[in-house]
Design a protein around this nucleic acid. Sequence first.
RNA 1: GGUGAGAUGGAUGAGUGGCUGAAAUCACCAGUUUGCUAAACUGACGUACGGGUUAAACUGUACCAAGGGUUCGAAUCCCUUUCUCACCGCCA
Length: 423
Amino acid sequence: MLQVNVLRNDPNFVKERLAVKHFKQVELVDEIIALDDDRKKTQVEFDNTQAKINAASKEIGKLMATGKKDEAEQAKLEVGAWKLEVEKHKEALELLEKKLTDSLVILPNLPCAKVPIGKTPEENINVKQAGEIPTLYEGAKPHWDLIKQYNLVDFETGSKITGSGFPLYKGKGAKFQRALSQYFLDFNTDAGYTEFIPPYMVNEASAYGTGQLPDKEGQMYHATADNFYLIPTAEVPVTNIYRDTIVKESDLPIKMTAYSPCFRREAGSFGSDVRGLNRVHQFEKVEIIQIVDPAKSYEVLDEMVAHVEKLIQSLELPYRILALCGGDMSFASAMTYDFEVYSAAQQKWLEVSSVSNFEAFQTNRMKCRYKNAEGKMQFAHSLNGSSLALPRIYASLIENNQTVDGIKIPKVLQKYFGAEEIV
RNA sequence: GGUGAGAUGGAUGAGUGGCUGAAAUCACCAGUUUGCUAAACUGACGUACGGGUUAAACUGUACCAAGGGUUCGAAUCCCUUUCUCACCGCCA
């Protein structure tokens, strides 16, 4: 959530930035400032009345103590009138505060200055492309056929157990999946990230903290009996470790990584890009998260991008890095780089990682603050990225490494998988 | 699921209606001093939203798990909820 002061300081700048994100209700900015003015005014009225009551109550205590009962009774009557007044102010104040946060919560994060202008994915900027796109043998198959051929994933039985989009990995297919997540976690912890195994369901406050609520209500699975949400990414539980906390400056940067299954309803997604492992409701992902000094968050964003790039390179996959344009960025992000790998048989770029700087958008919601050198309290910045999402890596690895005799396993994965190929 | 005990500032922990935004101790920070490490002493030391100021100073209100209630006045009394701990039950 944006801070009201950010809007106050330069409303036109805020509107201009919101337009980059193609946010329609720009007039909200002025409404919010007006609401905040009202709120301040009402608070002064409330505070002043309450102060009178507090002072009078103290006086009454003294009168009682010295036995001046009549005077005390007289004072009580006076206070009674003020109490009615203060009650009115309080109600008005609460109403204004609610309106204010309700509006504030609707505003997406402001894209930073480097964000490309654009509305659709086609307008994302290709920052870098590297790696060899392999030339496959005649008759090479897309991963959904390979999966059948080598008996790696059973979609039909997954559907029987739960529904479509819930894959059942088996045998070598399951082990390959495990090898990937193990390798990713080790790669991250070697780079100084602390590993966590978080809860896979979160409460409302946590979903709100990272911005899934209220924006993406319908995209999460909701266990209504307990009002828990299945996590769409480990970002949610892990970032919320620092909800309502004040961290020490010396603790920054905080670097965390976690493997988790991710659950997404993907309501409204359909079409050819949902085949096989391209888009599923339950998938595995290893996430990296950092909480950092605001002055350094863009430096850290670059560092995280470089980290993910190194990981993808180690898998020997062709990849490209995109700077997302304003219209394609997520609600909470100020700057996002997407990583896509090329899946050679289906001849498609698949998004496998998204690395974002949220600046103070999440930390403001979560009230994650730290004291800077001057002793001033301020919001830390939060960032996260996938390192990496498994299914599409899985798909591209088996497609790109297929031979007529079997699927070759990249070097770095062999010790985790325990073999050099899938036959 | 049952029973019981609890929840106070960074930590420990006192506080059962007004003198408590909160004792004390520890930690942290600043300073003094002994040759370093360390110790001793002195001082400062919660958060949020306001008012005020060039900036401070200063100042109002709220906050003792959360929400409600009683009262002129609540950390303190009452109700509800959540969480923690212990024991029992059930169970991977």
